[in-house]
């Protein structure tokens, strides 16, 4: 099992990469809206991502079950 420091040191860069991909997706969406002059008719996937990020931004998760919460959250999206 990894120590707290080892956990951050081991996975920080991969998490950084994954967050950059999310940021780039949101930028890509904005660019497409700007290019085409309209939003997607259904933005529920976008909203779902924003809600997921809000969930992750909460500092305390007593059960350490963020992944489980996200899976439950994303299950609402068809």
């Amino acid at each position: 099992m990894l120590s707290p420091k080892q956990t951050l040191d081991t996975y920080f860069l991969e998490a950084r990469r994954d967050l950059l991909e999310v940021a780039a997706l949101l930028d890509r969406y904005d660019e497409s809206v700007s290019r085409e002059g309209h939003k997607a008719k259904d933005e529920s996937k976008l909203e779902s991502l924003r809600e997921a990020m809000q969930l992750l931004a909460k500092p305390d998760h007593i059960k350490s079950n963020r992944a489980e919460q996200l899976l439950t959250h994303f299950a609402k999206i068809n």
Partner: peptide
């Protein structure tokens, strides 16, 4: 790069911008 530099998708975003 797989982790520490630009990703293929982000590179295409830049190519489009």
């Amino acid at each position: 790069y797989p982790v520490t530099k630009c990703s293929p998708r982000r590179a295409v975003d830049i190519l489009e911008k």
